[in-house]
């Protein structure tokens, strides 16, 4: 990884600056800086439109108890749904990625890899429609069973007959982020240097031991990155939740009616909103932005912390 540095040294020591070089360098630099400007713009305009809601007197906000009281149940619903989705989705995704990269025959693996790439691109509105039409009704009886047999666990309260619950939304979110995490993980698993795999095998490793020794450590930063990408997508996922979840007030019962998430709240109310309500929703969006930002920074920190031992030879 020190090659780029040598390259830079080489180019800066070049006496003649060719027009092509200047143009290319300029366009590259310009684009890079533009990205910073766009991001600054996102923050700036959101804050500007959110300020009225943040400064308005408490009784004018929906619910009448101020912005914080309005937004925290939404934050709770958003985080819970995403975390459940991540917990359900990640192990399965890693499993599929390993299946495709190391267990299935090469051709089958490639085929499945392609299908998974396709599914990563299936629009969320389609997932939402499927979840609502096919998945939620099937889960109704399961919730009934959970409520009857595991009802002492707070999250399994009275069951919703329609299945339009936070749990259903979470499971659909899990299915949605599955292809994303799988796709990223498969990519890094396939990139595991052959040499390292063979080194492990030559030491007398079984297949799983080889994966544990060579593949997983090599792929871990990528897998974490993919997981966080998935979590980020789940946090911000709007349509699936907006379609599936019958929104309601905060509740610990995840298999009954109740709860809502920030993005769904925005999507459901934005088209008819005006004035302060608009500002309220944009402020909620800002909160969502801050949450995803925090998740991202956390992911980055984890990946960086492992960087010392992940350097390529």
């Amino acid at each position: 990884m020190n090659a780029p540095a040598t390259r830079r040294a080489r180019s800066s020591s070049t006496a003649v600056r060719r027009p092509g070089d200047i143009l290319f360098n300029g366009a590259s630099l310009g684009s890079a800086v533009l990205i910073l400007l766009i991001l600054a713009g996102v923050a700036f305009f959101l804050v500007m439109e959110a300020v009225p809601a943040l400064t308005a007197p408490a009784e004018e906000i929906s619910g009448g108890e101020g912005f914080f009281a309005y937004v925290w149940p939404l934050v709770f619903g958003t985080v819970v749904a995403s975390v459940i989705a991540m917990l359900l989705g990640t192990p399965v995704a890693i499993g599929i990625a390993l299946f495709v990269s190391h267990y299935a025959p090469r051709r089958l693996g490639n085929g499945i890899g392609f299908v998974i790439d396709l599914l990563a691109a299936v629009p969320s509105v389609v997932f939402g429609m499927w979840g609502m039409a096919v998945f939620a009704p099937r889960l109704g009886p399961l919730y009934e069973w959970l409520s009857q047999n595991l009802g002492w666990i707070p999250i399994f309260g009275d069951a919703s007959a329609t299945g339009r619950t936070l749990m259903t939304a979470s499971i659909v979110l899990a299915v949605m982020i599955l292809p994303i995490i799988t796709s990223v993980s498969r990519e890094v698993f396939l990139q595991t240097p052959r040499l390292h795999e063979e080194a492990a095998l030559a030491l007398g490793a079984t297949k799983w031991e080889m994966i544990r020794t060579a593949v997983l450590p090599f792929g871990m930063p990528g897998v974490i990155g993919g997981t966080m990408l998935g979590l980020g997508r789940a946090l911000g996922e709007t349509m699936a939740v907006a379609i599936i979840l019958a929104p309601g007030v905060f509740s610990w019962n995840f298999i009954g009616a109740g709860n809502a998430t920030i993005p769904a709240e925005i999507a459901l109310n934005f088209p008819e909103a005006a004035g302060l309500r608009l500002s309220e929703l944009i402020a909620a969006g800002l909160v969502l932005f801050v949450i995803t930002l925090a998740v991202n920074l956390f992911a980055r920190w984890i990946v960086d912390r492992r960087a010392e031992f992940s350097g390529a030879n």
Partner: peptide, 28 residues
Amino acid sequence: RWIRFFVDVMTGIPSIVAGLFAFALFVQ
């Protein structure tokens, strides 16, 4: 390094927030 960092941040922007941004921009 900063750009990479902010691209990461940008990757995490929820799609609806991107919509809110565009709306807020065009409202201005």
